[in-house]
């Protein structure tokens, strides 16, 4: 489907430059990424109105757009090449591919891209957005990562503790600016895959630990995996199913607070024994016949 820059800006085809400028300003205020944090649709629309404004606010490019439509850059190029070919034929020269030298092409492109007289307007490059997928454990460590955005490799440091959905701005790594304008920025959103053992809530981690009935009743010790290795956990006697213990400082690293961590909250899941022997059954019956103790 053809892109209609006038429609994008909501102006008539004969709109005056002031009307185009006003329409662009109005839409930019609505759709600018600064005013629409984490809204990819607004960002996309903003890029569209930017492109439309770049073309329509420059009288030369607007004229070409009006003549050739969306493919105005190629249309101009094609027409010039045609004219050059015709000139060559009319002059009865070499009869090869138009007799057009490199200098002619330089003129052609110069005319298209900034060869005009006067002060060309500067345009800031487009902001780009990208996603970086990490797992929970990788995002818990400050590390360097190389990304390829628009064919360019960018090496960034990912600080420990970044959150799922968090977006950071990498200045100057967006699309190139035009006519000496600055490059756009790269907005990088982190996508962190869920971990099979831990779930994260803010800076705390939540985990579940299976506990056999005997340890739950009599107490004991349990080896537990954390993000930075295995720890020995003391289980209090008469630990209930669903009881939660908090391991301070064993949670997720706090973003940009080096050395600080949230807590790890472990929920005990008491597993009942199965496949009891007759002897065990007798013992449980004996227990059941005892006077009942209070249950919390």
């Amino acid at each position: 489907m053809a892109v209609d820059y006038y429609k994008i800006l909501g102006v008539a085809r004969d709109a005056k430059p002031e009307a185009i400028k006003a329409a662009y300003r109005k839409l930019a205020r609505k759709l600018h990424p600064d005013l629409n944090p984490n809204d990819p649709k607004a960002k996309e629309r903003f890029q569209e109105i930017n492109t439309a404004n770049e073309v329509l606010s420059d009288p030369e490019s607007r004229k070409k757009y009006d003549k050739y439509g969306e493919q105005w850059q190629r249309g101009e190029e094609y027409e010039k090449a045609q004219q050059a070919q015709q000139r060559s034929r009319a002059g009865g020269s070499y009869g090869d591919f138009g007799g057009q030298g490199a200098a002619d092409y330089a003129d052609l492109f110069g005319d298209l891209f900034g060869g005009r007289g006067g002060r060309a307007p500067k345009f800031r490059g487009q902001d780009l957005s990208a996603e970086l997928h990490l797992d929970l454990r990788a995002a818990a460590k400050t590390h360097k990562q190389t990304l390829t955005v628009n064919g360019k490799a960018i090496r960034i440091t990912v600080p420990a503790g970044v959150a799922n959905g968090q977006t950071i701005r990498i200045q100057g790594h967006g699309g190139p600016g035009a006519n000496g304008g600055p490059n756009g920025d790269l907005y990088l959103t982190f996508r962190i895959a869920p971990d099979p053992n831990f779930s994260r809530v803010k800076n705390d981690l939540h985990a579940t630990a299976d506990l056999d009935l005997y340890t739950a009743i009599l107490g004991g010790e349990l080896m537990l995996d954390t993000l930075d290795g295995t720890v020995k956990l003391t289980v209090k006697p008469e630990t209930a199913n669903g009881a939660v213990v908090k391991l301070k400082g064993k949670g997720y690293p706090i973003y940009k607070h080096e050395g600080q961590h949230g807590d790890l909250l472990v929920t005990f899941r008491v597993k009942l024994p199965t496949g009891l022997t007759e002897e065990q059954r007798v013992l449980f019956r004996q227990l059941a016949d005892q006077p009942k103790t209070s249950t919390p």
Partner: peptide
């Protein structure tokens, strides 16, 4: 931004109670 953060955190908390989530 605060509301977006809260929404994200609530989504993550909700994810913990969805079927198939073991932790």
């Amino acid at each position: 931004e605060g509301l977006q953060r809260e929404l994200r955190e609530l989504g993550e908390r909700l994810g913990r109670y969805e079927p198939g989530s073991d932790t």
